[in-house]
Nucleic acid binder design. Structure first.
Length: 216
DNA sequence: ATCCCGAGGG
DNA sequence: CCCTCTGGAT
């Protein structure tokens, strides 16, 4: 439908304009005080709601506020603290190992480099892009999570399924200065209106140019 | 492609 | 029951 690049760019402009109108201030919904804490919260957010992550990180960060402290926490204790976010053994292992790496190699600071971030345990492109964009204001790419993937496909901005391919296509049609806010706004819209299972198309301001409306 | 793995909604 | 929720590693 929007296979042509020019068409997808035009559609991207409509989407960005409406996003700005509907969600003028779209921030990360995860609670954090430092880049390190945002990194940990984002690792924990895999397959889990941000609301639940915030419940867990309240106690987690009270006990282990930085990389130096978390690197010295017993993994079993971390497992208990992050248990309700799902995948808790992997997540506990990853936040512990990532904290150790940061503490030993980077003096506890979070490096502002996508390749270095992706090298940390439990950190992929999605998490790295969140940290660089939200904590440091560096537009290193576009965060493609389950919401961004679903909405950009519905709105005709991409027809890809793979997150990396979706990001590549989005980078071509969304202005760089919009990259950081673009994802946050789509995520808000995905939660409030364009839900995965029962989208509220009647309340959706994007319906007038959304190719998905009326489609089974 | 499959596994990790928990809570909440429908 | 099945699906979804700000994924990553094998």
């Amino acid at each position: 439908m929007f296979s042509d690049l020019a068409d997808r760019k035009a559609q991207a402009r409509r989407v960005v304009r409406q996003l700005k109108k509907d969600y003028p201030i779209a921030e990360c919904a995860l609670n954090y005080e430092t880049p390190f804490q945002l990194l940990i919260a984002t690792i924990l957010s895999a397959q889990c709601t941000d609301v639940r992550v915030n419940i867990v990180t309240k106690d987690l960060f009270a006990q282990y506020p930085d990389a130096h402290a978390m690197a010295r926490a017993p993994v079993k204790t971390l497992e208990k603290l992050v248990q309700t976010t799902g995948f808790f053994r992997n997540k506990a292992k990853n936040i512990h190992a990532a904290s150790q790496a940061l503490d030993e190699k980077f003096d506890g600071e979070v490096p502002q480099d996508l390749a270095v971030l992706v090298d940390l345990p439990g950190v992929g492109r999605k998490t790295a892009n969140v940290v660089l964009g939200t904590a440091f204001g560096i537009p290193s790419g576009i965060v493609v999570d389950t919401h961004v993937g679903r909405l950009t496909k519905r709105m005709g901005l991409t027809d890809k399924a793979d997150a990396v391919k979706i990001e590549k296509e989005l980078l071509e049609i969304v202005p760089k200065k919009e990259w950081i806010q673009f994802s946050h706004r789509l995520i808000h819209h995905g939660r409030a209106i364009c839900a995965a299972r029962k989208p509220k198309c009647h309340d959706c301001h994007f319906a007038k140019f959304c190719p998905q409306v009326g489609v089974a």
